[in-house]
Design a protein around this nucleic acid. Sequence first.
DNA 1: CTGTTAGCGCCTTCAT
DNA 2: ATGAAGGCGCTAACAG
Lengths: 342, 342
Amino acid sequence: MSEKTTIYDIAKKLNISAATVSRALNNNPKISESTCKLVQETATKMNYKQNRLALALKSGKSGNIGVIVPRINTNFFGTIIRGIEEELHPNKYNVIICQTHEDENREIENINTLLDAQVDGIMISITNESKKNEKIIHSVLQKNVPLIFFDRKKNIDGVSSVTIDDFKGGYMATKHLIDEGCKRIAHLCGDQSLEIYENRFKGYRQALLDNNIEFDESYVIRSKSSLEDGAIATTKLLALSPAPDAIFSASDFAALGAIQELKANGIKIPQDFCVVGFGNEPFTKFMELSISTVDQSPLEMGNMVAKVFLEQINHTENFKMEKKIVLNPILHVRKSSSRKEA
Amino acid sequence: MSEKTTIYDIAKKLNISAATVSRALNNNPKISESTCKLVQETATKMNYKQNRLALALKSGKSGNIGVIVPRINTNFFGTIIRGIEEELHPNKYNVIICQTHEDENREIENINTLLDAQVDGIMISITNESKKNEKIIHSVLQKNVPLIFFDRKKNIDGVSSVTIDDFKGGYMATKHLIDEGCKRIAHLCGDQSLEIYENRFKGYRQALLDNNIEFDESYVIRSKSSLEDGAIATTKLLALSPAPDAIFSASDFAALGAIQELKANGIKIPQDFCVVGFGNEPFTKFMELSISTVDQSPLEMGNMVAKVFLEQINHTENFKMEKKIVLNPILHVRKSSSRKEA
DNA sequence: CTGTTAGCGCCTTCAT
DNA sequence: ATGAAGGCGCTAACAG
């Protein structure tokens, strides 16, 4: 009862060979319609299920792909994974998820685990730009396991990636603040060893330069993606003279921390101070003082990553392909930086 | 170069049998230390990686477990999955995720997919209480694949589950509103075919009865877990006479929708109207008018689910075990229902 | 201690 | 159109 039925069981029952059963099940055209039908019927009757493990061993393809993210319980990464899963599901791939918790060693370990598990591809948002993971990354490529970066990528020849234009996002956000009349725009930046944060910063700086606003290094403060860090950074900014009159934060969480700190100091938003975040986390929209932010289209990003993978898989025998997809960021102007409606 | 080395390659190189290599690699005590060491050294030298697919076929264990949730990009489910992954990772299990999107057919399909993939266990938060999935659930049990419910469970003998005490959560929330002096407490309830929502409702009702407050059916409104539905339900409630002076919502999202609608009607919170949600979504804490809510400890829930699975796996040969774990809900009193501080 | 053999379930030449 | 045989990589008897 609990024993699984194999093609041999079917073969025995029908007095034919297992090979024929296999062929019939796979709709091999060389099988007579009658036996084909017969086999398929008895297969369902006997509650036959293909053992994908056997198939995997035989074919070398597990039907699983691995996704590595810093953590899965954030809106951004959760939504990307959702996008990946939705796109891969119809193609019969399963999604295995791994978390690095921003730990490089964990990242290496996860890649090894996935390699051991014989995944058919790896999609990864890397932890940081350290050299530590270079070796393992290259061993993935050497094994010909399709590798795709999303959001946080490494620049490696021949490796596809799906990202958003962080430079443009930073530029748009800053330009918007300038248009709102802000004169002294500060920036809460993330880990500069990550391309995404570097690019947001560069976009910020370029927007200032393009609009004849002096770039002031003291207005740029490193801050983790947390309320606490955002608040701390804001305290530092307010101590400057002149203090800034706007903040472009590379993180929504830091932006919220900043807003709370500004309010605590009796500063009116957006009248006296404007804030723009990055990420379009759900809460930015829900707040009474809704927070302007840059959307990263995580669902589309997930979909694209999966699509690039599927494309790559189909060509992997013939030639190498490299595809760098850059999505457009979308600025959502909300109350925290919107003086016109205020 | 890209060819994978097998134990046969090692065997050939060392002029010993593959079996010995296998044993040495697995630290079988019957192998002499010298050969054991030799094998392991040449293995690393030759960059040997165990093919887990072969092992899986041989042992019937894939090393993967499947997790099925309605969707993964919510704080609640995302955090549960995080908890599961964290607990399972050290035990060398991979986590395959599936989404149902609240579609029963998709749920059945997902279970079949996981079964086909020979997962070593399935953890599921079911879509609803319909009879539709009974058949497939039982076929999982018949195949002796460990099955564990979390949060949204079915009551089936011999099947373990990890949930929170929704009755208690509903009771606590309602009791709190009563203590704050609310007299006419309404309830936004979810899909009553799901045990969790039914229990939250029952807890609500019991708290009323225990405190000599008449239960008024017209104060109970079905509402999906969305801002829109929360707002619509609130409009209906405000049209009643007498209108309620508090809402216990079984969903944080509906609670937020309610709050927005109340504000739009010029009603002061918490002075004139108190609101308590359910779920402790991040935004409830971030709001200026922070929302009181019931925390479901999703991280612990995830951890527990994984632990129960591991426990079950270790006993599966000897005897069946059933473990029903019920976590305690935690009420977070915040501004939306806190008159004393207000 | 180690080698031989067989088999997990499937597919795929090579025959017929 | 079908059967026989071999192999994917590993492990677990069963022998020595």
